[in-house]
């Protein structure tokens, strides 16, 4: 539907995570305590302030967790899409290096990919830990 170019990859990545994102976003909103909203309102907070001062900090740990999990799905999803249905991208390169027995290139590609994924994962995990010291 989106061809085999860049658009297809984006569409595939979006499709593979959209349900996770929707469900966790709903859970994140649920996690906001009604009492906290009431407290903010009693001190005269406007709607925008309730949003930024209560909703966002309450939801932040959930949202970062979601970001991390959906990026894992995205990464794998896009790689698979590239390997099987693309003429560009590192996934496609890895697939063709493998088929041509170009081992050094193949391993370089795989290791690079792993490094990027780990770096991303750890960065978000670190952020998550910083934003959720208050969660016991």
């Amino acid at each position: 539907m989106f061809g085999i170019g860049f658009g297809q990859k984006v569409a595939y990545a979006a499709f593979s995570t959209i349900f996770i994102v929707i469900m966790s976003a709903a859970a994140a909103v649920e996690s906001v305590k009604a009492d906290h909203v009431l407290v903010a309102r009693s001190y005269g907070a406007t709607r925008a302030q309730v949003l930024t001062r209560v909703y966002v900090p309450s939801m932040m740990p959930f949202l970062l967790e979601t970001l991390r999990i959906s990026m894992i799905f995205n990464f794998t999803g896009v790689m698979i899409a590239e390997m099987y249905a693309s003429r560009t991208g590192i996934g496609h390169l890895i697939a063709s290096w493998g088929e041509n027995f170009q081992m050094p290139q193949l391993f370089a590609g795989v290791i690079l990919l792993a490094a990027v994924a780990i770096a991303f994962n750890e960065t978000v995990r670190w952020l998550e830990a910083r934003c959720s010291t208050w969660r016991t």
Partner: peptide
């Protein structure tokens, strides 16, 4: 409507913002 200049409210337990 809530008017913090005239009225302060102290709620039941667990109404502090845990992230502050």
């Amino acid at each position: 409507a809530p008017d913090p200049d005239r009225v302060g409210v102290v709620f039941q337990e667990a109404s502090l913002f845990p992230w502050l």
